[in-house]
């Protein structure tokens, strides 16, 4: 595994040992729980996602009545690629790569030599394999098990962070997982490397307010972080260069998905049954209310690797 200096390795190794004692393995969403949500059927998701099959909040052009879901998704992908300084890079990692829209964009539009994706969804991995992208490599593995042979120039992760922990974790366990994640990204990145993250968080709400419907029936073994937890998880490992809340953009995205799903309801029922379609419609409706009301937020973080982290046990 790549590390930039002996001093830094020593510091981060200490942190890793401390984290391992907290048994952070398997504290996030299991492969079975991922399958429950993401492996419902690629053809079902195609009914209501845009043509790029991007399943995360898009970035909409304000006051542009002609904006479309597809344009807003491409704008979002370009935003993160720019924030991560990934254009023309040799190696870029996408953690939680979905159906591969970021990998495809990196290669086809932003001249990236090799784009690597991690997912726990077999359906997504199979889909990407069918895209015929020789410069893309997808692994069916957790970020916790990832061990690249060479460092990356940039890292992007869009709404995967919500799968790193579960509702029942203590604050200490949760922060340990987040610090482990950022430490891994630190180790995988070249010196002065950049990372762009998109994460749904609790907003004007507390964890105990969270919907049992969402976190048991729709997205089991999943939980949002708070903004403060992401900051605590990354401090002294990554420098936060920019944060912006795009919750209204997510509201528009969720409503666009819901509208498309309703328009294709009969086809959806044919593919996955009435119960699954109803569950997704309710989930998209409930989520659009949460982002509309500020119960949930959608944060984009631009992060720069700290090349000489403070030399103590907490990096």
């Amino acid at each position: 595994m790549y590390r930039c200096s002996i001093l830094e390795e020593s510091s981060c190794q200490k942190e890793e040992i401390a984290m391992n004692t907290l048994k952070t393995q398997n504290l996030g969403t299991s492969a079975e729980a991922i399958k429950h949500h993401y492996d419902v059927g690629n053809d079902f998701y195609q009914l209501w996602l845009d043509s790029t099959n991007t399943y995360s909040g898009a970035l909409w052009e304000e006051n542009d009545a002609n904006d479309t879901l597809e344009l807003a998704q491409l704008r979002k992908l370009d935003f993160h690629i720019n924030q991560a300084r990934a254009k023309g890079a040799k190696r870029v990692l996408d953690i939680g790569c979905g159906w591969g829209s970021t990998l495809k964009r990196l290669i086809e539009v932003h001249d990236v030599e090799q784009a690597f994706g991690l997912t726990l969804s077999k359906a997504q991995a199979e889909w990407i394999a069918s895209l015929n992208l020789p410069q893309a490599e997808v692994k069916l593995e957790s970020w916790q098990d990832h061990s690249p042979v060479e460092p990356y120039d940039a890292i992007i992760s869009l709404e995967a962070f919500e799968h790193f922990t579960k509702l029942e974790l203590s604050h200490k366990e949760r922060i340990a997982v987040y610090r482990k994640f950022f430490s891994h990204c630190h180790q995988w990145l070249k010196p002065s490397g950049w990372m762009s993250l998109q994460v749904s968080t609790y907003g004007n709400s507390r964890r105990e307010d969270s919907s049992q419907f969402v976190f048991t029936e729709v997205l089991p073994e999943t939980d949002f972080p708070t903004l403060a937890e992401i900051i605590e998880g990354s401090e002294r490992i990554f420098e936060i260069v920019a944060i912006r809340n795009y919750r209204q953009d997510y509201e528009y995205t969720l409503k666009a998905w819901l509208s498309r799903l309703k328009a294709n309801r009969a086809a959806g029922i044919e593919l996955v049954g009435k119960e699954v379609v109803s569950r997704f419609e309710k989930y998209l409706s409930l989520s659009s209310i949460c982002f509309h009301q500020g119960i949930s937020n959608l944060f984009c973080f631009t992060l720069r690797r700290i090349d000489n982290p403070r030399k103590d046990s907490s990096c």
């Binding site: 307010d209 919907s211 419907f213 109803s278 409706s285």
Partner: peptide
């Protein structure tokens, strides 16, 4: 507020789907 206890009491989109 989102209250899980009431979710099962009211059928939602399933009624109209």
């Amino acid at each position: 507020e989102i209250q899980s206890s009431q979710i099962e009491q009211i059928s939602t989109v399933s009624q109209s789907s």
